[in-house]
Every structure is written in structure tokens, then in C-alpha cells.
Design a protein around this nucleic acid. Structure first.
Lengths: 331, 331
DNA sequence: AAAGGAAGCGAAAGCGGTTTCGCAAATCAC
DNA sequence: GTGATTTGCGAAACCGCTTTCGCTTCCTTT
């Protein structure tokens, strides 16, 4: 497949103009007569010329590459954001260079130097969306830095993340709209940022409706078996509960099993709503849903990250992606 | 921040040697006295020199970038392979440039030209692991091309994919080892390659054990509701079935619900095993499992892809990644 | 002691473009 | 019709590094 790769000087020669003229003609820069420009263009096309992107980037000092810093690239949420952003960026000829904190033995400073040496055009920091703020690295780069699915200490950083509070609100509003009034909440670790905010949003709507939790919020883990365990306790304590807002779909799955095991019908006796849209994350195709859930908008985060990165000057600050209720069979 | 970026000639000047000597000293190429080499190195360190990776790649004609061609990057399996490969490659300073067939409006030929123009160092083609072979693109590049989670028409292509037949074997062996004998199989579309091969592997082991399916294999869709539906039929037809091999975890989830709904205990009356290791794909942490499943080794595929790409000359042919049984509560 | 080979280093070319700058021709102002 | 601009293009510098090539030294051989 060694078809001779043709260079800009080939084009220039064939068109009978100088190398610089050819460059300017194809780039649309500088003053070139429309005739010449067109002539160069057609000869370039005829010869099947394509820029040597590498040399080109080099001459321009831009690598057409975005650095990505993750805490744990194998985290499934991280993966979604990563894959979506990579897809969008790829469509714009931007490559990504991923440094995963878990794999690399280099520390962050080393990664930063490495990325700078590579003359990357921008940086994405992808967090796990749950607990700790990411340290702000913005000032250590001279290119745009965008934080995805996390937050930082610096309010001026460009951040795109999930709206956990709104997730909580949506969940409760949805359950209320289905006529449920005796609602409980099972979620993860009490110190988890996402868990806290989802609970807070939920309580807000509950209070607005003049209601209270049917039973105190149960904090535990992001795990299926916790859902099962917590529901067992819950039903013992508040047997008349008619809806459970589960902090994640995994918890929701466990919860559903426990509810059914108690002889109750879902959603007849107890409605269930989760968070994550696990099924779509796993299947992508338009499958028929089982568990009603809230999509936190990970793909949208990935898309917006890519868009902001290509934007010459993105507005600083936190941008929350709006979550969506995905109705299925459990409510 | 804007600390003056120092170049190789700065180092050379500071070390009192020529630019070329400095280059050779730092690269370990050519004959340079150990003294000079060391001297250059220390001055480079002292000055905090880092190669301009872009210029460097350019001079070497290698972009430190791997092209990735996907059919559908939003497919969750694709994502796992992609993210894992990207992580491994990132650790080796290789960026990835992703062209997703679904997003890009360019056709494959255009993508290929684009990638070649960018002087990529290698190509990964990621398939969906299920149905059709990927067209062989190897001859259209002059760099290594590796196919992941798919197969091609050309047996000499370097391919790394799941061992669906072995998955089927493992599933049945596992069920047999648990003392099950009346085994059924619920899986996806009959023309789906993965579904076929999993079924074939399963039947092989079944036959070796002198057994037959407790009921004919039920082909349907890769969906949770299909699992539910199929189990209902199955139990009506073969009420004494004591194990079900589900073609995927999604099917398995639906199946479990239907089994329990019939009043049977899992795994007491009916054991269930799925495929995909959905829970790990979703959670990554070492969670307690619920559904017994078979991990097809997507991450391993990603790792091997990266390794083969960096390997100067990988052996041609198909390489199957060994699946693993992940035992949990349903068997 | 002369010849041959190896070691060590620098000059210079080259990679494939972009961009500055200067010059000549064409256009404009009056 | 003359001077002042503008327009169009090419020569050359440049980006930062790698690599070839050739020139010295210095060490072996015999």
C-alpha cells in the first residue's frame, strides 16, 4: 500500500507556484488571487494531496491532541464520559492522550510536564462524580482545562458535571406524580457528595409537598446487596411505604428483589426509581426498560466537554447537565 | 505557568556541546563518550529540559498516535475495550485518535486517508463482538492493524477477541459441577455469531456429559424482557429444569425475575448463569456479586491490543482471550 | 613506525510545512 | 501622468529535533 505520499511541494510544482503560495492558497491565509487559489486547490485535489498533519501541527505548535487525566479510567462512569468525548473530539481530528492515575506511576506533576512537552491543545480532567473535589490544575497549563463529572475548589474553573440535586428533585417529583406519598430513600455513603446532594434535592421537593420521608434516609453503599438489605429493614420498620427512591440502579435492583420477596408487587404496592440509567449504559440500543431511573447525562457531559474544549473561550464556572427521567416498569 | 520553555539547543549551549551531540547524548544513539553523555544529561536535568514531543515525533515520522476505528463507540463493550486500550497506550505515551462510524460522515476510505496523513503508528479496529466480520483494512495501512472484539475475513490479520465457544463450555461445566443436569439455554438472535458459538460450545460439553438440553435452545434478543418472557415459556414446557444458561447478564436478570415469580428459588430450584460480568462492568470495585456470570475478558482484550500494537512484529492470526467464571449467588 | 580502524564530535541537511518580509506589478488618487 | 497604495507572489527564515556524513584523534596491529 505504499502509494507515494504526495507533499505540498509536489502540489506547488504541479501547479507551477512556489511552496509558500501553495501553502497560503490551501490555508486561505494571506492575499492570494482567487484564480491562483482555485488552481492550487484543484491540482491538490487532482493529485490527492493531504496535509501531513504531523508536520503541520508541528509548524503551528499545536498537536491536535487533548490530554485526559483520570483518577480511574476503568470506572464505568468515567468510561462513558471518556468514550463520548473521544468520539466527539475524533470527529474534529483531535486525538486524546490518556493518563490514568491508577496505571501510571508518574505523579501529577510529571504528567503535566509530559503533556505540556507534547504541546497538547487542551486538558480534560474526569472525576468519578461522587466524592472529592479535584485539585485545580488550570493554572498549571497554558491551554484550556475542563473538569468533567467532578468539581474543583476554584469556582472559576470550567466544570461540567451532573446535577445531583436536580436528580433528587426529579425522582421525588416523578414519584409524587404517580400518586405516591409514603416515600423512602436508600442511598450510599453519607459522606458521598452525590448521595448527599441527591438526598437534599429529594427532601426539598418532599418538603414543598408538605411531606416527610416515610422512614429516615438509609445511607449505606453503592451496591446491589445494600439495596436488598436496606429494603428488608425498611419494610420491617415502615411496612406501608409505597415508593422507594434508590440512590443508584444497582441499589434499585437489590431493592426490587427484596420488595418482591416480601410478597409485594412492583410497582403495584411499591414503586421504585433508581439513578444511572444502567440499562442504557449497558446496552445502548433502544431496549425496553425495566427499572425506572434517572439518566444523569454522562454522554451529554462528554459532548459538552468536547464542545467547550473546541470553543475559543468557554465561560468559567460550573455547568450542570440536566438529568432526565427514564420511565419504565417499576413506577 | 509561563516558565520559559527550554529547548535542546539551550541544553547544548549550556553544556558546551553541539546541538547534534546533545541530541545523541540524550537519545543514547550514536557513539558518544560516557562522560559527555553524562554531562549533557545532568545539564539537561539542571535546566529542566523536556523534549518537544511534537517536533520530535515529527522528525522521526511517528506521531505517537494510534488510530481507532469503531463501528459504534457508544456500545458499552466497545467502550470497555477502548478505555482499557487507551489507558495502556497512554502509559506508553501513545495518544489515540478515534473515528466512530456512527458519528463521522466520512466513509472508511476517507478515514484511512486521514489517519495515514496523520502518520499514525498503528490502528485498532474495535468491533461489537457479536455478528458480522469486519472488513480487512490491514493492507490499506503501512502500519500495524489490530482487530479487537471482532474477526475478519483474512486469517492473517492480527485479531484479539472473545472465546465464545469456550464461554459456552465454561457455563455448562460450571452448572454440571454444581450438580445440575436438566439445563436449558436462552440466548439472542439465531444469526448472531456470539450467540451461535456460545450455544455450540455449550452443546459440546453437554454432549460429552451424555446430556441434552432440557428444552430446545430459545433464541431471541439480547434483552432483559426476552429473558423474562422466555423463562415463562420454558417453565411451562419443562417445569423440572434445574439450570438455565443465559446468553447474557441482561437475559439472566429477566430470567431470574421470572423464575422467582414462578415461586421457584434461585439457586435452590433453578441455577442461573449469565455472560458479560455486567456488575463489574458497571462497578469496577470489588462488589459482592449477585448473578453468577462469565467474564468474557474485555479488559484483557484491551490490554492485549495495546501490547500487540507496541510489539514490533506481532504474530498474525486470531488470539482468543480466555473467559472466566465469576461465581456469585445464583448457582 | 606506518597503516588501518574505531571513537567522538560537529556541520549541515532534512523533515514538511507556516509565516515574515520584500519586491514587482497593478490599481488608485488627484 | 506621477506618486502612493494595494495586491499577488516567491525567497528565505524558521519550528526543534534527528540523522548522515565527514573530519579529527586516539588506539591497535604488525
Amino acid at each position: 500500500m505504499a502509494d507515494q505520499v504526495i507533499t505540498l511541494s509536489d502540489v506547488a510544482a504541479a501547479a507551477g507556484v512556489s511552496l509558500s503560495t501553495a501553502s497560503k492558497a490551501l490555508n486561505g491565509t494571506d492575499r492570494i488571487s482567487e484564480a491562483t487559489r482555485e488552481h492550487v486547490r484543484t491540482t491538490a485535489d487532482r493529485l490527492g494531496f493531504r496535509h501531513n498533519a504531523l508536520a503541520r501541527s508541528f509548524a503551528r505548535g499545536r498537536s491536535q491532541t487533548i490530554g485526559v487525566l483520570t483518577h480511574r479510567a476503568s470506572n464505568p462512569f468515567t468510561r462513558v464520559v471518556l468514550a463520548t468525548a473521544a468520539t466527539e473530539l475524533g470527529a474534529k481530528e483531535q486525538a486524546i492522550l490518556l493518563y490514568d492515575a491508577r496505571i501510571g506511576d508518574r505523579d501529577v506533576t510529571e504528567s503535566i510536564l509530559q503533556l505540556r512537552a507534547r504541546r497538547i491543545d487542551g486538558v480534560i480532567v474526569i472525576g468519578t462524580g461522587t466524592s472529592f473535589p479535584s485539585p485545580s490544575l488550570t493554572s498549571r497549563f497554558d491551554v484550556p482545562v475542563i473538569y468533567a463529572f467532578t468539581f474543583t475548589e476554584d469556582p472559576d474553573d470550567v466544570t461540567i458535571t451532573a446535577d445531583d440535586q436536580e436528580i433528587g428533585r426529579l425522582a421525588i417529583r416523578h414519584l409524587l406524580s404517580k400518586g405516591r406519598r409514603r416515600i423512602a430513600h436508600i442511598t450510599a455513603e453519607p459522606h458521598d457528595n452525590a448521595a448527599q446532594r441527591r438526598a437534599a434535592g429529594a427532601e426539598e421537593v418532599l418538603a414543598e409537598a408538605g411531606l416527610q420521608w416515610a422512614s429516615p434516609v438509609r445511607f449505606g453503599r453503592w451496591r446491589e446487596d445494600w439495596g436488598e438489605e436496606a429494603v428488608a429493614e425498611l419494610l420491617a420498620e415502615a411496612p406501608d411505604v409505597d415508593a422507594i427512591f434508590c440512590g443508584s440502579d444497582a441499589i434499585g435492583r437489590g431493592a426490587e428483589r427484596a420488595v418482591r420477596a416480601s410478597g409485594r408487587d412492583v410497582p403495584g404496592d411499591v414503586a421504585l426509581i433508581g439513578v444511572d440509567n444502567w440499562e442504557q449504559l449497558m446496552h445502548d440500543q433502544r431496549v425496553s426498560r425495566h427499572l425506572t431511573t434517572i439518566d444523569v447525562g454522562l454522554e451529554e457531559i462528554g459532548r459538552q466537554v468536547a464542545a467547550h474544549l473546541l470553543d475559543p473561550d468557554p465561560q468559567p464556572g460550573v455547568r450542570y447537565v440536566t438529568p432526565q427521567v427514564v420511565t419504565a416498569k417499576t413506577t
